[in-house]
Amino acid sequence: MNIAFFLLPKQDVIHLTMQTTLRQTLERMEYHRFTAVPILNEDGTYAGTVTEGDLLWFLKNNRGVHLDTAHRHTLAEVPLRLQNRTVRIDSNMEDLISLVKIQNFVPVIDDMERFIGIVRRSDIIEYCADKIFKELHHQ
């Protein structure tokens, strides 16, 4: 089994850039009902993950920033409280499992450090559950 089996490719992943405005970020997160979204640099490398909490604390701690002015501020201004660790597409499954235990999703990069997609914790759990239940039914 390799990581590519679980990969949700970049074109199917909602992702943002550091130049995305706070308003755009909030609207996309609300529309897709995501609590965290990967951020990419202009060169396609993984820059970090923005969470609802990051946005909330930024709005709380910056008096001049509110929903009416959110279009004037970009993600580059928002401190990110967590840095989801990445895994390379050619890494072993043990590396992926150790990260998916502590992250909702694991950003996957290629050998040039470019973001190529994510592996979701839910997909790993679903795969493992299917394996366990099939074994139980075959006993």
Rank of each mutant, 00 (worst) to 15 (best):
residue 24 Q to A: 07
residue 28 R to I: 15
residue 89 I to G: 05
residue 81 R to Y: 14
residue 102 I to R: 12
residue 41 N to D: 02
residue 61 N to Q: 08
residue 36 A to L: 01
residue 30 E to T: 08
residue 30 E to R: 09
residue 32 H to E: 13
residue 19 Q to A: 14
residue 129 A to R: 10
residue 109 I to D: 06
residue 123 D to P: 01
residue 72 R to L: 14
residue 70 A to R: 15
residue 114 R to N: 14
residue 135 E to Y: 12
residue 38 P to N: 03
residue 105 F to H: 05
residue 132 I to W: 02
residue 73 H to Y: 15
residue 21 T to W: 09
residue 17 T to P: 00
residue 58 F to N: 00
residue 51 T to P: 15
residue 60 K to R: 09
residue 95 D to T: 10
residue 13 V to Q: 08
residue 58 F to P: 05
residue 62 N to S: 08
residue 22 L to P: 11
residue 65 V to Y: 01
residue 38 P to A: 04
residue 118 I to T: 11
residue 89 I to N: 03
residue 39 I to A: 08
residue 10 K to I: 10
residue 118 I to V: 14
residue 89 I to L: 11
residue 68 D to S: 14
residue 118 I to A: 12
residue 72 R to D: 05
residue 127 Y to W: 15
residue 103 Q to T: 03
residue 49 T to C: 08
residue 88 R to C: 14
residue 23 R to Y: 09
residue 137 H to T: 11
residue 31 Y to V: 11
residue 15 H to R: 09
residue 139 Q to N: 13
residue 58 F to Y: 07
residue 72 R to F: 04
residue 102 I to S: 09
residue 115 F to K: 06
residue 85 R to H: 13
residue 47 A to Y: 04
residue 111 D to N: 11
residue 80 L to Q: 09
residue 40 L to H: 01
residue 102 I to P: 10
residue 25 T to I: 03
residue 65 V to M: 02
residue 14 I to E: 14
